[in-house]
Design a protein around this nucleic acid. Structure first.
Lengths: 347, 347
DNA sequence: GTGAAAGCGCTAACAA
DNA sequence: TTGTTAGCGCTTTCAC
């Protein structure tokens, strides 16, 4: 039950230098890709390091180079919303593949509110815990970029923010548009949208995409219920939509968990999907494939997103600049939750 | 688009010492809670530090104290399984609340396979990236503790492992037992279990708990289908169980996502829940509350688990020892997915 | 092309 | 009680 013995003392750059018969400085040069080391010397040094299984210590490096070799991700979310969100695990996996190869590590924080979020960013910066951060869940009026600029913390945002220096975006317009087209193609005219959080960029973008797609087909784009992306709110919004006078025949959800919850709410009220109501989701989560009927949803690739964002952040941190990247848009995969509208709907 | 200016150079211990009119040594003593500093001097030093908004640099500390002020969590999971698992987000939130207060940070890794996992542990240890780790998803014959011992990396396991030095456990026996009792009380006799991964401790424990509870009631404990905890496998196991000659009238699932997928599979085959088949889940996830019928499930508290594990790991790292802790067991919360078995079942 | 030595910011042993 | 100083492991400037 005790952890008594000290960890074995690792070899240092001095050991390597001695073994290669050179000075510390040269070893450092080799490991930092500096020119001006004779090929033969370089080989000898690499051999020595390899023999000793030595690698430069990140902490020592941090001290002399002001680089943490770590990236940060601060997530501010309601526990309930976070728990049913399948995005993060896959996103993190993607981030890791890239950071790991680059010898970087991911520092993750989950915070409950905006104050904790700010404190976290400040201490990550003050302590030089990270060299840069990923910014997710963009707000439409996001205060974080000012803070990050003040802290001089390079950031890559997921989705484009007006004042982010680099971003990786996955277009949600296309997927929502395809969903509307799919439904309209089946004959639906009264299509509603259970939107996400309107204060968040992805919630808002999907909402606007819905309105645009509906307007483009001369359909009424007004049947929208806003939520906070939680399953509970998805169910609530569904109930409120079907209570309206002109009940919709189809609902486009801004996320799979909400669609699944909506399916539950409809089923509870004896409304058959897809015979009486068609549903589409967004994300392409595993569970969406296993509810009945299988959800028609927009498949996205969060792992690709993570890997791309990580590469962008590395570039930003190392080269001091990075671009705004666009990822291929999600695409609609028809399931069993969409069908023709019921033949005779009272207007 | 450029991140040009260097981050503002933070004050150092030297600045604080100068401002307080003392030496660096004294400042260090004060910030490490060492005795032997005059009260008045100490106050002066604290004031100076406060004025300068100075805090000791973790990296510099790491170098001289061999402490990283960070904890690690390495998750090896199939992306699909991880994505539908609601446990981690809440667990992480719990961990963070404790680590944050203690000035520690969480280093997270998501790895695809066992080799990557080992490499990750090695580099976390070699680079002194973390002072200790959380070990989750215990295998019944878990190789990781040998590795961690070799690396001298203190570890707290989630669930008790024979060779872990500290652990935090949440009993699954009680919850599964309650589920069986609940079903038996409703009149079910042919109760099946869709188990988790039998090579993982929590999967195995729930499986054994099921068998024990069934045997205690003189019921046949043999109807078990093993899975890997994925939703897909949950659906598959469900299908195989209802295909058996003595079809069960109730199924106890080892997780909510599998129960939800099972519900989907049954629904697809026209089997009514709960009229023809009762289901129970495990975890108490948000989505489980919003499917129809609402899942009868075992509520657990992953955030509490995270906070407790974090406290244990801090203790282990700081004091060199920690205990095995037990958390209150999950408890069954009846929903709409359980009812009396159908009156006349052909044997 | 290579070596010596001065930092990076802090801790801790030793002196005073 | 307080000050001095030698590390911790690495990078980098400046001589040679």
């Amino acid at each position: 039950l005790t952890v008594s013995e000290p960890r074995p003392t690792a070899p240092t750059i001095t050991d390597v230098a001695r073994r290669a018969g050179v000075s510390k400085g040269l070893v450092s040069f080799v490991f930092n890709g500096r020119p001006g080391v004779a090929a033969e010397t370089r080989a000898r040094i690499l051999r020595a390091a390899d023999d000793l299984r030595w690698r430069p210590s990140p902490h020592a490096r941090t001290l002399s180079r002001q680089m943490a070799y770590a990236m940060g991700l601060v997530i501010r979310r309601q526990p309930a919303v976070l728990a049913s969100d399948p995005f993060f695990p896959a996103f993190l996996a993607g981030v890791e593949t890239v950071l790991g190869e680059a010898g970087r590590v991911l520092v993750l924080s989950v915070v409950p509110d905006i104050d904790a979020e700010e404190r976290t960013y400040r201490s990550l910066a003050d302590d030089r815990r990270v060299d840069g951060v990923f910014v997710t869940d963009l707000g439409r009026d996001d205060h974080r970029f000012d803070l990050l600029r003040e802290l001089r913390l390079p950031a890559v945002s997921l989705g484009r923010a007006p004042d982010s220096s680099a971003s990786v975006r996955m277009d949600d317009t296309a997927g929502i548009g395809q969903a509307v087209d799919h439904l309209a193609g089946l004959g639906h005219a009264r299509i509603a949208h259970v939107a996400g959080d309107p204060t968040m960029v992805h919630g808002w973008r999907r909402r606007v995409a819905f309105q645009t797609a509906m307007a483009a087909r001369d359909l009424d784009p007004g049947m929208i219920a806003d939520t906070d992306f939680s399953a509970a709110a998805g169910a609530g919004a569904t109930v409120s939509l079907i209570g309206r006078r002109h009940r919709p025949t189809a609902i486009v959800y801004a996320s799979d968990p909400m669609a699944i919850a909506g399916l539950g709410a409809l089923s509870e009220r004896g409304i058959d999907v897809p015979a009486e109501m068609s549903l589409t989701g967004y994300d392409g989560t595993e569970l969406a494939h296993h509810v009945h009927p299988r959800l028609t949803t927009v498949e996205t690739d969060p792992a690709l997103w993570g890997a791309t964002a990580a590469r962008a952040l590395l570039t930003l941190v190392i080269d001091g600049r990075a671009d705004h990247l666009d990822l291929p848009a999600g695409r609609l995969v028809p399931g069993g939750s969409t069908a023709q509208p019921p033949p005779s709907q009272p207007l």
